[in-house]
Amino acid sequence: MELVVFVLAAAMILVGGLGVVLRSHPVHAALSLILTLFGVAVMFVSQQAHFLAAVQVIVYAGAIVVLFLFVIMLLGVDRTEDLKTEPFKVQRPLAVIVGLGVVGLVTAAVVTSRDVVATRGAGIIEPAMTDPDSNIRQLSRSVFGDYVVAFEVTSVLLVVAVVGTVLLTRKVKPTSKESQ
């Protein structure tokens, strides 16, 4: 059963990923991204990480891609792009290099830690199997306990980003003397 779930979810992720890159229409690309995110959520569920799966759907599929679509629709860029023209010349070679690099790194990581990965049941935390709420408990212990400073600093960073965006998008109004 695990294998079936894995194959289906992996197919969702791959089809979605290819769709993001290959679809020439921005809205279709964004929809493919949702497919990928759902596939990852299914993977999380099959690995017993229910909370992560739910958050994946709520935050990424439910909020972030909605905002992507918002921007696409409001800016009116929702028309088909010609994939043959390349706006920035360096972009595609760089993307190829980064993609190959990521594949290489993941392969290297798997090869070096082959003993651990290949062992069945390695790294399973026991309480997660019995107590349904333990997922959330463990997450909250590390986020609000061990790594609370990093967590709070991240939230400050987000607030800075929001305030910065608001400031940048405000039009500088001519003062009343100049306009009169």
């Binding site: 909370f51 739910a54 958050v55 709520i58 599929a61 439910g62 909605v66 349904p132």
Partner: peptide, 23 residues
């Protein structure tokens, strides 16, 4: 085990129906 979050997830997915219908 994440029943309530599932509710939130579904309500956030429902946005797509309306958004994409209009677009």
């Amino acid at each position: 085990p994440v029943g309530v979050l599932l509710l939130l997830a579904l309500s956030s997915v429902a946005v797509y129906g309306i958004m994409l219908a209009g677009w």
